[in-house]
Amino acid sequence: LPPPPKKPLTKIVSHLLVAEPEKIYAMPDPSLPEGDIKALTTLCDLADRELVVIIGWAKHIPGFSSLSLGDQMSLLQSAWMEILILSVVFRSLPYEDELVYAEDYVMDEGHSRLTGLLDLYGSILHLVRRYKKLKVEKEEFVTLKAIALTNSDSMHIEDVEAVQKLQDSLHEALQEYEGGEHQEDPQRAGKLLMTLPLLRQTAAKAVQHFYSIKVQGKVPMHKLFLEMLEAKV
């Protein structure tokens, strides 16, 4: 028997799938000597370029651009690291104990230790394992990323009701998706949402770590990355 026809995806989920950014490459500078400074420089440069992409992506979330410019800024300033990490996590799902910072920049435990990123490696891998166990799908990942942005608990939101409305529409899209695709597990939407505290915790660690690298002043950082880092501390 052919499988029963799948319900069409919710409009929001299909829109988010289309809005998903292209693959990004780290392209380490071949003129830099190998070592921890080079690795961190590569990661900070990658993060800076990804931030530009994330800002463009946010504007494609249905309803985001209707928020005030101030609220758009506040959400991004709160959630950018969660979104960066969630993307690394999703790219790393097909791998075993490796983090795919970019298609051409995959770090294992040894490489992470050498660059002083072992702690962060462990935390992100913990998230990867959670999502692997859930067998998270691309549709769920794109929706969760948008939910993380609107659920960033910024203290500077001007129009709380408008942000709540946007959050509700994304939450509803996730529930509708699960209701159609995962009827076998009525708790699935909840299980996915319950991964967000670990994401928040991991992002906070990452921000602290990169902020201390910034203070040490040995690694060059681009302006947008610095601006977003400073907005978090």
């Binding site: 809005a19 530009v52 800002i55 463009g56 494609h60 249905p62 800024m73 300033q77 947008l224 601006e227």
Partner: peptide, 20 residues
């Protein structure tokens, strides 16, 4: 907001949602 110039500029300038 002066402190967050680049974010402000990118939000105002980058592609509009109707481009999709």
């Amino acid at each position: 907001k002066e402190k967050h110039k680049i974010l402000h500029r990118l939000l105002q300038n980058s592609t509009s949602p109707v481009d999709l």
